[in-house]
Write a protein that binds this DNA or RNA. Structure first.
Lengths: 187, 187
DNA sequence: ATGACTATTTATCATTTGTTAAAAGATAGT
DNA sequence: ACTATCTTTTAACAAATGATAAATAGTCAT
């Protein structure tokens, strides 16, 4: 739980009262590899901080899987599409490793944003980071072909690479696993 | 200027004092078709509201152009990559039609976010919308091929379609103009 | 209307990526 | 060590998209 607070405080300073209010609303849960933190069709009610482990957010089109993003330890995440609108999610969240998350309920977070200006500021910073990440992703998908996207991922996520299967990486990059295998073979 | 306030108030209610503070910091400017609102390599200092007209945000890789997004009248926009970090922009903003924008300086907006909780809330809502839009864009780029992306754009942006050139639409979809022409011919 | 310029279409060929199937390699449980 | 299962690689062919060039259509200034 304290890592959650540390992370927040680093991003945007919180006063003592807001820290206490946050702490009072945090819960922690453990998941095994393969467990779903969120099933599609359900509303994402939580904002998560990942203490340990790795998750992927993804969705299916027909029987094909597409990965939106990987989240390793020490970052915050949620399914914004569902969390922000409180509508059923198109996306799912799955633990790729034994994972421990600390989370806060959307209702509580919303109230705390209203109550504490500094928490609203924190949330704004979180959304800023998410926006920057997604913007980067979009520009990469536009300007780079599969090989370049793969190389970029490798250099920028070197440490994650060993923890992600080839199939998952391919789904993230936006190609088939067979294509990615071929790309790797050519180098 | 008042359309700016109307838009904001609709998104997130503002008290009178914050409205006044906003109004005192707004400026309005007119651009001709083809004018740049922002050149790449410069820092995006403003958050814009578009009263009239149409702009595109885009970038170059070598001599190829890629379009991030179109913004028509009555929406807010900026180059978040640069605005949020106050670093030189990879992206440019160009008017595709005679365009009138009302805008606020990043310094001023930041101060107002600190001064008025309700303006911070407004900004959070703006970032939420941007995040949802980008999330949708990413999932479309993952799951849909060029033909599907084109069809989706046509049905969802029917009114914009007549105002955007084929080449620009292709750059947005992420294919060459020649490919898009072929896709349209097949239907 | 004319000419100059720009945008769009069409055609051809090259390259990339998808699809399917089979083989090879890795992992976990017994 | 052995099977069963899952992951990754390899191969052959199909489909989609890119690159280039030429033809057609549309736009704008005079």
């Amino acid at each position: 739980m304290t890592d959650f607070i540390k992370f927040c405080n680093k991003l945007s300073p919180l006063n003592q009262e807001s820290v206490n209010d946050l702490l009072n609303n945090l819960k922690t849960k453990t998941y095994q590899k393969g467990d779903l933190l969120l099933k599609d069709g359900t509303v994402c009610k939580h904002l998560y901080f990942i203490n340990q482990g790795l998750v992927k957010t993804f969705f299916y089109k027909k029987d094909k899987e597409f990965i939106m993003r990987f989240f390793p330890e020490n970052v915050m995440f949620s399914i914004l599409e569902s969390y922000l609108t409180q509508t059923p999610s198109k996306f799912m969240i799955m633990a790729l490793e034994p994972t421990i998350v600390t989370f806060i309920h959307q209702n509580d977070m919303e109230q705390l944003c209203t109550k504490h200006h500094c928490i609203e500021t924190l949330f704004r910073k979180l959304l800023s980071i998410a926006s920057l990440n997604m913007m980067k992703r979009i520009s990469i998908m536009l300007e780079d072909n599969a090989t370049e996207r793969y190389n970029k991922f490798v250099t920028e996520n070197n440490k994650l690479l060993q923890r992600i299967s080839l199939g998952d990486l391919a789904s993230y990059i936006g190609i088939t696993q067979v294509s990615l295998s071929r790309i790797r073979a050519i180098k």
